[in-house]
């Protein structure tokens, strides 16, 4: 049968930063082709197709419905594959190869992680799951 794509509404203007992305205008409707866990979603809008940040979209049906998974305060062990320096005060700065605990996997690609006493957002694309249990 036909593939029904999920529709989302654009909540803020977005200017693309690479040729595989598309520009968005507030109120545009887009259809989602693929959701990458790193927070980039491949979508089509009219005749355009490309990657857009999931954080700029809300579901067309029931925007109040939370789509994110529940937080897991026990934490899942991940290792950082790239260093990242916090650009906002709710983010964490981490070096490559640090073991941290993921406590909330947000669809926008900025997971909530814990390192010691510190908690903050970190790009999920710079994290790799470790095989070990705590």
């Amino acid at each position: 049968g036909p593939i029904i794509l999920e529709s989302y509404r654009v909540i803020s203007d977005y200017s693309k930063t690479s040729k595989y992305e598309i520009n968005l205008l507030t109120g545009d409707l887009v259809e989602i082709v693929e959701k990458s866990p790193n927070g980039w979603w491949f979508c089509q809008c009219d005749t355009k197709r490309g990657w857009v940040p999931a954080s700029y979209l809300e579901p067309l049906d029931g925007p109040e419905e939370p789509e994110d998974a529940d937080p897991n305060y026990a934490g899942e062990l991940y290792i950082t594959t790239q260093a990242y320096k916090a650009a906002q005060d709710d983010e964490l700065t981490l070096e490559t190869g640090e073991t941290i605990e993921v406590i909330h996997k947000l669809l926008d690609g900025w997971w909530v992680v814990r390192k010691g006493e510190e908690t903050g957002h970190f790009p999920s694309m710079f994290l790799h799951k470790t095989g070990e249990k705590k």
Partner: peptide
């Protein structure tokens, strides 16, 4: 065909979304 997603982190949610979540 679908290319690989960008290899840089996506932007943080716009202010509109942050207010909604708060």
């Amino acid at each position: 065909s679908i290319k690989l997603p960008p290899q840089n982190p996506p932007p943080r949610p716009p202010a509109e979304m942050r207010r909604k979540r708060a």
